[in-house]
Design a protein around this nucleic acid. Sequence first.
DNA 1: GCGTCCAGGTCTACC
DNA 2: GGTAGACCTGGACGC
Length: 321
Amino acid sequence: MIVHDMTFSTHFDFVAVPPYNFKLTVHKPAGWSLLTPFEVFERGTLWTVLRVPSGMVFGLKMKSEGTVDAPRVSCLAYSGHRLATNQRTELYETVKWMLSADEKVNDFYALANNDSLVRAITEDLYGMRRTKQPDVFSMLILAVTLQMAPIVRSNQMMELLIKQYGEKARFDRKEILYWPSAQTIAETSVAELKRNCKLGYRATFLKAIAETIQNGFPSVHELEKMPPAEAKLKLMELKGIGEYSADIVSPHSGFALDVWSARIFHMLFFGSEPKSPRDVIPKLKKIAEARWGEWRGYVFLYVLHDLDRLSKRLSLKLTDA
DNA sequence: GCGTCCAGGTCTACC
DNA sequence: GGTAGACCTGGACGC
């Protein structure tokens, strides 16, 4: 395992566009991690690991020093060597971008005036912002391991991949494990990936994806500059990446329905279980686009992090999936 | 303890 | 262009 001993640190802080709830944004209610499953969140402070698009790895210690209506985020970044000016600039810009600090969501909140579901979720999770992972390969690992597996098994595959082939960052008296690089997976055989990480047929996909990325693939910023449909098609050129996985990985806010979330949105739209969740996905996507337009990705995010309270509000069993 | 089923998609062959 | 069937594996379940 590659170990990064990070003894150099640099501090910066920045304001975010209100309303902005730092805790809800970096430590979301459903428990999904911001950057790595092994990050630590304690008493309002997050210790995590970031790989910026140019490839450098940083340890991050972040906390809020403001309020939801006057938000300010403090960030202490650790590295293995003193940073050049351009490296510091990339780090600063990437962190702000990752946390959607400059994103204006007024139009999303305005939907609450005429949409009771949006009203409920924005009341419950006021100030929560979407986040973006600048490391495309880690998102591709997530997407591939989520395919055709119960969540317990997906977590098992991800943890094995990180523990066997990932990287370790040591900083601020913490040790945080991080996703493997595309280079490491490209240099590992399919048989070894299958054996060590219980990936099954997904090992072939992951190896092929890693090799494609090594040979040259758009960065997350380049994907973001493309029209959403073009970025999605580019991602779908990768072996094992279909429509659902591309929606998860794309930096454009998507409506990535799988059979689990399709069941939830069918319950929300129609109050009943779908007979075949997979078959209703295209129909549900059309309804969401017509109802919420460009903000459907935000609705998706808020709903999936608000299932407990929504279930009570609407008297629906949304959390049994 | 053992056998069976199937999961938070995607690819391929075939029509 | 649409649609079955196959795909790794291990946890859940029934017996």
